[in-house]
Simulated scan of single mutants.
Amino acid sequence: MDIPVNGHPLYAYTGGKPFDAAQPTVVFIPGVLNDHSVWILQSRHFAYHGWNVLAIDLPGQGRSQGTPPASVEEAAQTVLALLDAVGAPRAALVGHSFGSLIALEAAARAPERVSQLVLCGTAFPMKVSPALLDASVNAPEKAIHMVNVFSHSTLSPPPSALGPGTWLYGASRALMRRMLASNRAVNVFHTGFKACDDYAGGEKAMAAVQCPTLFVIGAHDQMTPPKSARALAKLARQPSVVEVNAGHALMTEAPGAVLDALRKFLSALR
């Protein structure tokens, strides 16, 4: 589904369901060089269980047009503009990695618009090593390899989000290459990483969030270590923490556990 946002079509996977104003809405926000597909199990479940689902591609990448957001704050405004565009007065926001910072900032900027907040694979500060920032510009294939090594705790857990035996490492590399190639004018790899590295408002944003917040943590996450997420959770008003047996790519390494955590959290507060 293409939704006009800030003058450009923003793609959102809806599970094939039309928007119903009588239903609650949940927005799924991906991380750097990821798209709506990383949420495929979770988003499809909610679409078929009484929710409006908007699993988005960030602007300027994947199936979305426009300019890639250069900051967490800019991306957060896009999410709020998306809610305006579809006529959703409130929504639950679910974000992963870069997407978790975007969801956090959006919830802080418009607390009355966000019913629940879920931060998956999050950390603050979300600093990126200078070597990885440099590689994202000068050696992107090397950087993609580095990210995937640190994002996965195992290569083919049964069952995976795409079926038993799926090579998660290879599938993730292919997705990242595709996302990088989707914008020839702007390096969305470097832009996204720099936005994460530059974001300084996490603690202030967490203090401004009014809704319950769920932290879904990968026990073996080397990109956003669990201790960083737990430190941020201490600043939340109504925090819940669920740890799953996965690395940073927790939606595909532990799809069932992530879905169970979302179902319990979102359904309890619906």
Rank of each mutant, 00 (worst) to 15 (best):
A76K: 05
Q77W: 10
Q77Y: 05
T78I: 03
V79F: 01
V79Y: 02
A81I: 01
A85M: 06
G87N: 05
A88W: 08
R90E: 10
R90F: 03
A91Q: 07
A91D: 06
A92S: 15
A92P: 03
V94R: 08
G95F: 05
H96G: 02
H96D: 07
S97D: 11
F98G: 00
F98R: 05
I102T: 09
A103T: 00
A103G: 08
L104H: 01
E105T: 08
E105I: 01
E105R: 14
A106H: 07
A106Q: 06
A106R: 04
A108R: 06
R109V: 03
R109N: 07
R109C: 02
A110G: 03
P111A: 03
E112H: 08
E112Y: 01
R113P: 03
V114E: 02
S115E: 05
Q116I: 00
Q116A: 06
T122Y: 00
T122E: 00
A123S: 15
F124C: 04
S129C: 00
P130T: 11
L132W: 01
L133P: 04
V137L: 15
P140V: 11
E141L: 14
K142P: 01
A143I: 10
H145E: 14
H145T: 10
V147S: 08
N148I: 11
N148D: 14
N148W: 10
N148G: 13
V149P: 01
V149G: 09
F150C: 11
S151F: 13
H152T: 09
S153C: 09
S153L: 01
T154M: 12
L155T: 14
S156I: 07
S156R: 13
P157L: 14
P157G: 08
P159E: 04
A161L: 14
A161G: 14
L162H: 15
P164F: 07
P164D: 13
G165I: 04
T166Y: 12
T166H: 13
T166S: 13
L168P: 08
A171W: 08
S172F: 08
A174N: 09
R178L: 11
M179S: 02
L180C: 07
L180E: 02
L180F: 11
A181C: 11
A181R: 15
N183D: 15
N183T: 13
A185V: 10
A185I: 08
V188C: 13
H190R: 13
H190A: 15
H190K: 06
H190C: 05
G192C: 13
G192S: 06
G192I: 09
